[in-house]
Design a protein around this nucleic acid. Sequence first.
DNA 1: ATCTTAGAACGGTCTAGACCACTCGCCGAA
DNA 2: TTCGGCGAGTGGTCTAGACCGTTCTAAGAT
Lengths: 256, 256
Amino acid sequence: MAAGATAIKGDIDRTSGTAIYVQLREILRAYIAQSCPPGSALPSERDLAERFGLARMTVRQAIDALVGEEVIERVVGLGTFVRRPKLDLQVKLTSYSEEMQRRGMVPAAKVLSFEQIGASAFLARELQLDEGTPLVRFRRLLLADGEPMSVDENFIPAHRVPGLLDGEPPTSLYNVLSEQFGLVMEWGEDMIEATAASPSTARLLNVEVGAPLLKIQRHAFVARAMVDYSVSYYRADRYKLWVPLQRPGARRARNH
Amino acid sequence: MAAGATAIKGDIDRTSGTAIYVQLREILRAYIAQSCPPGSALPSERDLAERFGLARMTVRQAIDALVGEEVIERVVGLGTFVRRPKLDLQVKLTSYSEEMQRRGMVPAAKVLSFEQIGASAFLARELQLDEGTPLVRFRRLLLADGEPMSVDENFIPAHRVPGLLDGEPPTSLYNVLSEQFGLVMEWGEDMIEATAASPSTARLLNVEVGAPLLKIQRHAFVARAMVDYSVSYYRADRYKLWVPLQRPGARRARNH
DNA sequence: ATCTTAGAACGGTCTAGACCACTCGCCGAA
DNA sequence: TTCGGCGAGTGGTCTAGACCGTTCTAAGAT
């Protein structure tokens, strides 16, 4: 059930010289920003038409514009909904838990696997060690505020984390590596690509098979040693990455 | 004087199950491809409405779609025109070209548009200036070995690049900005997300509608001024990004 | 308890205009 | 010859609906 259109502040000024649909667009934008959490329904086109004394086509024009800006989306037969803003994930070497807490969200994880495996040829190559070398494999579904956000899988050479598998799976991997094993990731590199959701990943992330996902493969280093190789899949509708850039040689940009 | 609408082949099939405005859109697309050189005028909205027995609003919907795809453009008081031709131009892009050449591929670019526009509400917000402010819009399809790789679109405040549009579209945008206007990008930020290919982008990149693409929105700065906002779509099957990482406070990583 | 159907509410599409502002060409007056 | 005004043609905006397809819920039947 959509919110009542009568709750929307603002009126149309037919003498202002600004197109009526443009005025309505801005009224709706302000209303959404102040009163509409993501996922909430807007009043129907007909309700808005009645509330503002406009033709439904004029209301649709204003809504068309906000749809184009990805502020809202329409669902046939159901209504018009505020889009969840995509999270700006700065690509940096901090733990997921820290990042979500910084955003006022409750991080959670469902452990899918926490075990020792021998390095496959592929993993041996990525981690720069011999095939068969023991690795700790830590695979999780990461959630924020109860919603699936990403599927992460880490591979860490077992000899660097003796005893890790004896305890409970860590709630924050990088924190445990740092505090328990003195491994503080100093640098790394990400490979970022778009990919289509496989059936298993789709099920975990609650998206349709084939939906676009962000895939990030990461190599993390301590000094010259690669300590972690990970693969993560992020829901495309909930994530975008924020990457600070700097021209080589230019002074560091200010971070907000 | 526009061509007569009676010259347009094709008819609307009200029983086909395909929306009438979609049918008209495709009729117009074919007509433009076969009979309308760039710059020529289409029949007016009212002529098309009469020719096909449709409401003018329905015709406008079909035209809206082709305008959105940049096949045609509208001019208030004058008419609807087929957009200027694509310019085939070999472009040297520092990072793109190097990357392609490292792979033993031949880089190229197709200019899709090179023009001045007034800033839309969205672009005004992204570029931190007033709605309507003149911008230079530079849109390209980037290819390697003749295959489409990405679609890039830059927006630069026109006052920063006086005379830029008088010449040919630059082969290397950032080089021209640097050498001709003294604008050297010092820092910036990318927003990276996965998205599903829209019909127009899918056609440009030769992928299926809905296929995953990497979308990168970039804000580039000189000192504190934002000088360039760009949006790029990359084929997911042909592109992944490499992002060097560094833990805040750690010493700089070695670059290869 | 379950299934089916109908109705309500939604967005999508379409009709049939009207009126406004812009552009350009033509014609008449100076 | 030049200038201004007017009319025609254009797209932009808006009205006031109608009808279709989708989705969901509630009520009645089994």
